[in-house]
Amino acid sequence: MIALVVGAVLAVAALIYVLLPLFDAVTPLRARLTGTPAAAPESAIDALREIEFDRATGKLSDDDYAALKATYTRSALVELRSRRGDSVAESTAPEQAVTPSTADAPFVAGSVDPAEAAILRYRAIRRSCDVCGPRPEPDPAFCSSCGKYLKGACATCGAVIDAPASRFCANCGSTLAA
């Protein structure tokens, strides 16, 4: 008899615990990305480190090493610069993030292969939501997850565009794409 009562009480308590979230406001499922991302595909820098080590242990011949080093150094540089491309879009201090490094080592579209240039272009226009992180859609105006307005970057000078529906860049005055 006691067991029945205890069981019933526990079951009701569990039921309340389980059903409670349903009384919250209906919220969309969204990516709460506060932890570290689960898994990174291997970065070119890690690959380069491994290549160095494999050479040091004699596993890579000099020819293979040179070929791999060239390929992965390129990828690593692209990785670095695309990282900066991201930071242009995400940075809150645009005047700092602009071009000193590109002026230094001219990052001209012609000097890389078309595919990589396309990746870089894509990364440059990709938007990121302050709350939910980068958006997967090309060129969104609002966050597809929480609906917040997404800050953009001026294609000409790289300044952050933070007013919704801006038609012109507040920094350099050039016309913005829709």
Binding site: I45, T73, R74, L80, A105, P106, D113
Partner: peptide, 25 residues
């Protein structure tokens, strides 16, 4: 893919090198 090398500044290369040599994985 035409294997055109990327031009990189000495500084960039130095930092890349440092990142690779850094012991912490």
């Amino acid at each position: 893919a035409s294997p055109v090398p990327i031009e990189a500044s000495d500084d960039e290369m130095a930092r890349l090198e440092a990142a690779i040599r850094s012991d912490d994985p």
